[in-house]
Write a protein that binds this DNA or RNA. Structure first.
Lengths: 190, 190
DNA sequence: AGATGACCGAAATGGTTTTCTGGTCATTTT
DNA sequence: AAAATGACCAGAAAACCATTTCGGTCATCT
């Protein structure tokens, strides 16, 4: 495998395991079996390496989600499977969870910025799907900006916040059912 | 006014303005025009003074909300007015916003605990209202625990989080409309 | 020409001293 | 006598400084 890929992979591993700050370039280089300087021939600095790692993950999620969407099926059905997919991603989201935590306690600016980027990215993705639903006349003509924001925040609340007040994490089917019973049901036309 | 009230009022002002940690007992005493020792004849310690301040605010909110509820009107209508009331409380919620912030950056245990208390309190309040709606057969038989949690978190997201990514705060009517279009609409029976 | 690791300065860390503040209580005030 | 007070104390937080760590560079090596 080419060196760039090698480095990217090591970086992903390290960021996921230790977070942004606790990951050192030297560490990444060692895992990738290259010298420290080599990292800098492919990435201008730590921040951009980080960015690339995160962007890669987002892309993967988008691709996966897109793949699970059936453009002939109903909005409801697709929303269901997409959300399900997301939920099953939970472990993969470990990096995100790690970052959220790091941002909360270390206040690393690079992390905060990246987290905002992720938020923007995901919300715009959801927004586009909602737009399609509206155009297909399957859901009511709502403020898609706000609805996306709401879906995103609600999802996060259940995945991340819930644990901090409750012993055991929510079961996927419960989250799914709740979304269907409330927001999705409310959005459905008729 | 009696000294106890005086102190309570100064404390509220100070906590709201500066947060928990940055509020000193001496400061509170000075504003209330009493000696420091006097504070301790009415409240066992800083934490309990804080608790009383917060509990007062919650109580006030509950009373206000209850007052605005018409037990003969529909769930939808009441949910609307209650939410409206909450939104108009926004400035009063300054304390809560301040506390959320403080908890995020200072990790004050007393604050974290109080925040959880507030969450519990509010969610149980919402939960009770939903139960009523279910009993009156006005809304679907949902998981009231989860729905309350969702409503609470969504509300917070719009009131607190939104500002951090967007320039101007959301307009009350937009938030209201969104809740009606989505969650409330979804909950409504048929 | 591309890779490397010793090297540099800025930033983080840890340990020590100083300052601050919650809480007490002997004294004063009413 | 009962209530109020502020000087005082101990422990927590802040400020300070010495030392280490780590992102980034570049002269050297392959």
């Amino acid at each position: 495998m080419d060196r760039r890929q090698e480095i990217l992979q090591s970086a992903t591993k390290s960021f996921t395991l230790f977070g942004y700050k606790a990951t050192t370039i030297e560490q990444v280089a060692k895992i990738a079996n290259v010298g420290k300087g080599t990292v800098y021939t492919f990435f201008v600095n730590k921040e951009e390496l980080f960015q690339e790692v995160v962007l890669n993950l987002i892309d993967e999620m988008k691709r996966e989600t897109d793949k699970s969407i059936d453009f002939n099926a109903s909005f409801m059905h697709n929303a269901h499977t997409a959300l399900m997919k997301m939920l099953q991603f939970r472990e993969r989201h470990l990096l995100f969870a790690k970052l959220v935590e790091e941002e909360k306690e270390l206040r690393t600016p690079a992390v905060k910025q990246m987290l905002l980027e992720i938020e923007r990215e995901i919300i715009s993705y959801i927004s586009a799907r909602i737009q399609m639903g509206i155009e297909k006349d399957e859901i009511i003509d709502c403020n898609k900006e706000l609805v996306s924001y709401m879906l995103f925040k609600t999802y996060l609340a259940f995945i991340v916040d819930w644990q901090s007040t409750h012993e055991e994490p929510l079961k996927e089917e419960d989250i799914l059912a709740l979304f269907k019973e409330t927001i999705f049901r409310g959005l459905a036309k008729k």
